[in-house]
């Protein structure tokens, strides 16, 4: 989308630093400009531009009908989105924080997730549910939940999570274009992360459901997503001095799950650690470890390990550093991958 006022640089797709929040906003804007059935609705998304400013400017550009401040009721927001989608619109709803999406759970699980199936394909629901995800921002109680395990345990929902500025744009565009409901989890602590990025000529993205190798390596594979990607990248750098060359796989989407990319990596390295900030027990890591083991058993030199948040309610901000998996815990897990057998 270029305007007459756009500079030559912009028309050529100038690359400049952008935050993840800006890239997400741009994805919404471009989707709305391209498709008049795309509607954004949620709490404070209009005049304020969202508490994380992702929807900044949309109400101004497209009007209150396209970007709507709703009454404060998440079940109402998602239920209305279901109805709008039933009538041919493509709603993108914003939940203000992950823990505040819980009132919408019934609409999501009983309706959004099941409508295609219960109507035998007659009524798919192209709804995107954007949810600011996870912790690490010093948020007080109920502002730092990890809720992906609930969603990925619900057949019928896609669960997508970007970890880079470029993916934030591409994955959100793909999610909005999807004819299935997508829970789109936005890592809060990456909202202000910056990368060189071209708003005018964003790189093409693959369809949702493809993992990507962020760092090739030979010693072991770190399997991760969202806010834990930067942690794993840092751990991989730190591991060099320990003599480990770690591969890092960014899942990008939990549902669909890219078995192919993950298994190919683990077959190459023979060792794997799953890293995420959500609780370990009943968390995504268990599913991932099982899938890797089922596919790569004969290539594995050690059990697949998990580094996860503790099995506790998210702690107060002054204690959250103890809870969140950091570089040291990742390296510690790597060290436990039975290297003795190597020598």
């Amino acid at each position: 989308m270029t305007t007459a006022a756009a500079t030559a640089g912009e028309r050529a797709g100038a690359v400049r630093p952008a935050t993840m929040a800006q890239a997400l906003g741009r994805a919404l804007r471009d989707a709305m400009a391209e498709d008049p059935t795309v509607h954004v609705l949620g709490e404070d998304v209009g005049t304020l531009g969202g508490v994380f400013r992702v929807t900044d400017g949309l109400a101004k550009e497209f009007g209150d009908d396209r970007c709507t401040d709703t009454p404060l009721a998440e079940a109402g927001i998602l239920g209305a989105a279901v109805g709008m989608a039933m009538y041919g619109l493509r709603p993108v709803v914003e939940m203000q924080f992950d823990a505040f999406a819980y009132p919408a759970f019934e609409q999501l699980v009983s309706h959004a997730a099941k409508m295609r199936n219960r109507t035998r394909g007659a009524m798919p629901l192209p709804i995107t549910v954007r949810v600011p995800y996870g912790g690490g921002i010093g948020g007080v109680e109920h502002h730092s939940d990890s809720s992906e395990a609930y969603y990925m345990a619900t057949p019928g929902l896609h669960v997508v999570m970007p970890a880079t500025v470029e993916d934030a744009y591409g994955l959100l565009r793909q999610s909005i274009a999807s004819d299935d409901p997508v829970v789109f989890l936005e890592p809060k602590r990456l909202y202000w992360s910056k990368a060189a990025w071209s708003a005018e000529a964003p790189a093409p993205v693959e369809p949702i459901g493809r993992a990507v190798v962020r760092r090739p390596g030979r010693s072991a594979t770190l399997i991760t997503y969202g806010p834990s990607l930067p942690v794993c990248m840092e751990a991989a750098e730190a591991a060099i001095s320990e003599g480990w060359d770690l591969e890092v796989v960014d899942l990008r989407s939990l549902v669909p799950f890219d078995d192919e990319t993950v298994a190919a990596s683990v077959r190459r390295t023979g060792r794997a650690v799953v890293v995420h900030e959500s609780s370990g027990f009943g968390g995504p890591g268990g599913e991932i470890a099982a899938r890797v083991t089922e596919r790569c058993f004969h290539h594995l030199e050690a059990p697949v390990l998990r580094v996860a948040g503790f099995d506790i309610p998210y702690p107060p901000p002054m204690q959250e550093r103890h809870h969140l998996p950091g570089v040291d815990r990742v390296l510690d897990a790597v060290a436990r991958l039975q290297w003795e057998a190597e020598s």
Binding site: E43, D44, G46, V51, P71
Partner: peptide, 11 residues
């Protein structure tokens, strides 16, 4: 207000 949302949009 509810953050930025005025009462008129609430009820």
């Amino acid at each position: 207000f509810a953050i930025s949302v005025p009462l008129a949009k609430q009820t």
